[in-house]
């Protein structure tokens, strides 16, 4: 299925269009400790562009993007 990393927190943001999954990820990253891994589920078509862009700009690590059944899963590690 794609990942063998331990996920510390799962955010189910399916069905969220406003404010949207990236906002949920930013909130979670602010709350997380450095090194923690967050998984975000998204059904918003914009996430495949938004989330990698923000993760790169904010200096975190995008471990992977996985197509699931009707949604995408993004796995991100907080790096700083």
């Amino acid at each position: 299925m794609g990942q063998d990393v331990k996920v510390d927190r799962v955010i189910d943001a399916r069905g969220s269009f406003c404010p949207g999954p990236l906002m949920e990820l930013i909130k979670a990253i602010r709350e997380a400790k450095v090194g923690e891994v967050i998984s975000v589920y998204s059904s918003d078509s914009g996430s495949k562009r938004d989330i990698p862009l923000w993760v790169e700009k904010a200096g975190h690590e995008l471990i992977g993007v996985f197509d699931r059944n009707g949604y995408a899963e993004f796995i991100v590690r907080k790096k700083r």
């Binding site: 269009f17 406003c18 949207g20 906002m23 930013i26 918003d44 078509s45 914009g46 938004d50 923000w54």
Partner: peptide, 10 residues
């Protein structure tokens, strides 16, 4: 904007 666009709704 906190997002890579100017408005939350894509």
């Amino acid at each position: 904007s906190p997002l890579p666009r100017v408005f939350p709704l894509e």
